[in-house]
Design a binder for these strands. Structure first.
Lengths: 245, 245
DNA sequence: GACTTTTAAATGTCAGACAAATGAAAATTT
DNA sequence: AAATTTTCATTTGTCTGACATTTAAAAGTC
């Protein structure tokens, strides 16, 4: 592993070193579980001090590209990026992206349901009995009186998560996790009254029934209804805020 | 901003500090463009040394959560996460996720086209003349003889990117960027002969024509054909490798 | 041979220093 | 007085050297 950095570049040395190692990982020159040279060795190779190397390694650790282990046979190892780590990173990124860029509820909602509908027909073909049971259980929870809005939303996420997982495609699940979970803060702005909860639960039941019957078209129709109902609810909230009682 | 960390925790101090600040940003206690205390002040607050604080800040910088500036009125500032930064992060993550976890071509391909089809009907409604022109231009490029496989793939990505952007929903574009671009290394394994290029270009033309006519159903049908054709090509490559000529 | 102790190697953390950039204040010149 | 230059304090970037902690392997002991 012989990589060069430019000490005259305006960029931080640690950023350059991190990029050099990142490139090596992405391109496959460094493979999973391979051990990087020790911090001292890297410092020698890049002609920088150990703290600078450490800052570079922390950058990579923040992206789950490497993991470190202390001790005699320790060091920094190329990390196998698993779906779980990728999920949580994507959720953080998506959440911030939505909250910091004033993405409208409609835009986020449209994206979410467009993606979810993409999974629905696959889910109708492949959903397991377990996944269907999860959805039924979440519907049951949603019907409990005294549920807080947050808990209702969380259950909603779990329901839709099971729907997406039903497609049996981990790449789809990964992509969708970000979209669905990142919307939760936006969804939490909505107050779900008893009447609207009833309506949502009814549509969820339609979806579960259609999935049980492996009827993709009906799932799709229910999702469309759910989307427009959700957007309607958000609009009502926005209007109430504009002219309060 | 008073945050606490646990010096007895097994986790690195810099990781704990990074998480504390990350939480403050995600929860909104630190807002965009707000300046963090200086490294020395943070070191005092968290009762750690400056190098440790710096490692924490580099972790956050790697996620584009903060930016730093040198000089008298410099410091670390909460960064407004923009779509571009989020794109590139997601592409890195998705690419590694696919390459490191032996995701099959079929799985990735299915995910990609499912998501893309989700955009297609919106794109048929909303695509601009510019986006249509981009697609036509990429089709023209794809028809050039002497184009390398890599260049053909890159043009393919640009074509599909324009299709996705046609939906006019930045959240969708962001989500799809990862899925489409991450597949490029996998797609590059395929050798595109003259005959298969012709077929793909023909389907691309069908898609562009249908988008021009704002005919969502025909776009969807062409995408389905394109997916099955792409998977067929990959299967042929795999078979040729199994029993070479 | 099984167990304990020692040791070496690696990361984690700290302290203090200097370099470089940068904006603001002060001094100087016009 | 206005404009320019100089000085200066602040902050991040980098370096050196040291010590603490963890860990696995080697050495020693029963």
């Amino acid at each position: 592993m012989t990589m060069k950095i430019d000490p005259r570049s305006p960029a931080d040395l640690s950023a350059q070193i991190a990029q050099a190692i990142r490139d090596a990982i992405v391109s496959g020159r460094l493979i999973v579980d391979e051990r990087l040279p020790s911090e001292s060795e890297l410092a020698d190779q890049f002609q920088v001090s150990r703290p600078t190397v450490r800052e570079a390694l922390k950058r990579l650790a923040a992206q789950s590209l490497i993991r470190t282990q202390r001790g005699a046979s320790g060091g920094a190892f190329v990390n196998r990026l698993n779906f779980e780590d990728a999920y949580s990173q994507q959720i953080t990124t998506s959440t911030l992206l939505l909250s910091m860029n004033a993405v409208s509820f409609d835009t986020a909602c449209e994206a979410r349901y467009a993606l979810e509908r993409a999974c629905a027909s696959l889910s109708a073909q492949r959903r397991t009995a377990d996944q269907l049971a999860t959805m039924r259980a979440e519907i049951f929870r949603q019907a409990q009186p005294g549920l807080t809005d947050e808990a209702f939303c969380a259950s909603d996420v779990a329901f839709h998560r099971a729907l997406v997982d039903g497609a049996g495609n981990p790449v789809l699940s990964y992509q969708l996790a970000g979209a669905v979970e990142a919307m939760q803060p936006l969804m939490n702005m909505i107050t779900f009254g008893a009447r609207s909860r009833e309506e949502i639960i009814s549509l969820h039941t339609d979806i579960a029934d259609a999935l049980e019957a492996r009827d993709a078209a009906t799932v799709d129709a229910a999702l469309i209804k759910l989307e427009s109902y959700t957007r309607q609810l958000a609009q009502d909230v926005a209007e109430q805020r504009r002219r309060p009682a």
